[in-house]
Simulated assay, not measured.
Amino acid sequence: MTEFPKILMIIGGTLLLIGFFMQFIGKLPGDLMFKKGNTTVFFPIVTCIVISIVLSIVFSLLGRFK
């Protein structure tokens, strides 16, 4: 039962970080948005690159601890 609080803290911290970064998704310089009439096309190029880098670092760190 001593692992349960630790797991809850890890889940809470992860959700906090995800919520913080979700505020900036789609608002980075380099994300393209085209509007014409009723149509909007959005290409989150820089956002995808940032997410890819962050996930690569996280999975690299997790792989070292196994």
Score class of each variant (00 low, 15 high):
30 G>C: 01
52 S>E: 06
46 V>T: 05
53 I>R: 04
11 I>W: 13
63 G>Q: 04
65 F>C: 10
12 G>S: 14
58 V>S: 08
19 G>V: 00
2 T>F: 14
57 I>P: 04
53 I>S: 06
33 M>W: 02
4 F>G: 02
53 I>K: 06
66 K>T: 12
41 V>A: 07
15 L>P: 01
48 C>W: 15
60 S>R: 14
42 F>E: 04
18 I>W: 15
13 G>F: 00
61 L>A: 14
53 I>E: 03
22 M>I: 09
51 I>E: 13
1 M>R: 14
47 T>D: 02
21 F>S: 11
60 S>E: 14
17 L>K: 06
32 L>N: 03
60 S>P: 00
24 F>T: 03
33 M>A: 07
29 P>G: 05
16 L>C: 07
19 G>S: 11
22 M>G: 00
55 L>E: 13
30 G>H: 04
14 T>A: 05
48 C>G: 09
60 S>I: 10
36 K>I: 00
8 L>A: 08
64 R>A: 15
39 T>E: 08
26 G>K: 03
12 G>I: 02
35 K>F: 00
47 T>Q: 01
48 C>D: 12
34 F>K: 04
54 V>K: 05
39 T>Y: 08
7 I>R: 09
1 M>N: 14
23 Q>T: 10
20 F>I: 03
40 T>M: 08
36 K>P: 00
25 I>C: 03
52 S>K: 05
25 I>P: 00
30 G>Y: 04
29 P>C: 02
24 F>N: 04
19 G>T: 05
30 G>M: 02
5 P>Y: 02
23 Q>M: 13
63 G>W: 02
63 G>F: 08
38 N>Y: 04
61 L>W: 13
55 L>Y: 14
5 P>S: 02
40 T>H: 00
1 M>F: 15
51 I>A: 15
38 N>M: 08
54 V>E: 06
54 V>H: 04
20 F>Q: 04
40 T>G: 03
44 P>F: 00
1 M>K: 11
37 G>M: 07
53 I>W: 06
8 L>Y: 08
26 G>W: 04
22 M>K: 14
56 S>Q: 04
50 V>G: 03
20 F>M: 05
18 I>S: 06
40 T>A: 06
57 I>C: 11
4 F>K: 13
29 P>S: 10
6 K>Q: 13
62 L>G: 06
1 M>I: 11
65 F>D: 14
64 R>I: 15
27 K>A: 07
30 G>T: 07
10 I>Q: 14
35 K>S: 07
5 P>T: 02
12 G>H: 08
22 M>V: 05
27 K>Y: 08
6 K>S: 12
64 R>M: 15
37 G>R: 01
43 F>S: 02
39 T>M: 07
61 L>F: 15
6 K>D: 09
52 S>W: 10
65 F>T: 14
16 L>D: 05
39 T>R: 09
53 I>M: 12
38 N>Q: 05
18 I>F: 05
61 L>P: 03
47 T>L: 02
60 S>D: 13
56 S>D: 08
23 Q>R: 12
30 G>I: 01
48 C>M: 15
20 F>A: 12
44 P>Q: 01
19 G>Q: 07
